[in-house]
Design a protein around this nucleic acid. Structure first.
Lengths: 192, 192
DNA sequence: CTCGATTGTCTAGCGGTGCTAGAATCGATC
DNA sequence: GATCGATTCTAGCACCGCTAGACAATCGAG
């Protein structure tokens, strides 16, 4: 059975290559540039090979999103654990979130702007997505305030971060106010 | 010169028809369904006619966005002026914003999710967009709090609303918490 | 009232997209 | 080394945004 195992390994490796290449191409030239033809060329296979791994382009986006969610969760936890005190932790978390969005725009788009065919806020939500939310919840749940459900507070705080991330990137907000907006958000929304 | 005037009127009327049809089609079946072919067929002209009015599809989206911005500004002002007291005004404004986004998803997408080729937060920003922001500012500027720049506070509050609007529509937030999230946002972020 | 010029609109087609049927090739097994 | 199943490729579909060039309708001058 070793032959079959080797084939499965190679297949899995090729799948990782597809996802990594899609992500790389998207970060370099935007998701519009990620066409099945270009992607196939970059991995040095023909187009139909992509469809033996994924149902379609949407699923490839979804795979990038899942990978990104796992990374984001790690980044958020690292930021939170590197700060002392509630206020500092929340500020570090918020800052890390926006920085992740800014440094990985294509991944952020895959997660929240594009249709990756992923389920959210329900039973069959993939684990990495639930975990990324959990990472937010761990820090934000502490500052929800009395009588406020931690998850609901986290949803609200997250929405604000998401709004800042997307509107900033779309050039809809004055760039010089970024830091002040973030301070204000932490100071006002969180019960410190 | 009456002939020329009539032609100009007819041309302007056809342009309105294009924008209205694009909007209608987008609300009915989503922006993906708004193709130049389908749009041309609906207005009973051939494709190239669209390009005698707009540089391309992006500009048509932009036209829908501008129309939507004007409507949104009116809706926001109406909501704010129909409430007494700061707290009620802010709550009414926020509620009206989210309701507009929910009831006009295609217009909201044209404004903030899709590329309509419009400038933002700078000199050459079209008037309706500046005015929609102004409508927010009129109510929110009052509750920025001491030492906080009203425009910056408005940007933050708007970001939170935008995040709630987009994440809600994408099914990323638990639907039953909508009202509570909104209450919390108003209560915490605004200085009442 | 006719005729040429101008304006307006359409047909047809370009290069691109996501995706797939069926041919061709590869490679493990006998 | 031949066979046969799994794998990969070639070629093509219907659709996309957009445009060149043919055509028709309209206008102004004689």
């Amino acid at each position: 059975m070793s032959v079959q195992e080797r084939k499965e390994r190679e297949r899995a490796s090729r799948e990782r290559l597809i996802v990594a290449t899609a992500r790389e191409l998207a970060e370099q030239q935007g998701w519009d540039a990620v066409t099945t033809r270009r992607l196939a060329e970059r991995i040095e296979y023909s187009q139909p090979v992509l469809y033996s791994h994924f149902r379609g382009k949407r699923e490839i986006i979804g795979a990038v999103a899942l990978e990104g969610a796992a990374e984001m969760a790690a980044v958020l936890r690292a930021a939170a654990s590197g700060a002392d005190g509630r206020r500092a932790r929340v500020a570090a978390l918020a800052h890390a979130y926006l920085e992740f969005a800014e440094r990985n725009p294509a991944v952020y788009d895959a997660l929240f702007q594009l249709d990756g065919g992923l389920a959210f806020a329900q039973e069959d939500t993939p684990e990495p997505l639930k975990d990324a939310f959990a990472a937010l919840l761990e820090t934000l749940g502490e500052v929800a305030g009395e009588g406020v459900h931690p998850a609901l507070f986290t949803e609200l705080f997250w929405s604000a971060l998401h709004g800042l991330a997307t509107l900033t990137r779309a050039g809809r907000l004055l760039p010089e106010g970024a830091e002040q907006r973030l301070d204000l958000l932490v100071e006002r929304l969180a019960v410190l």
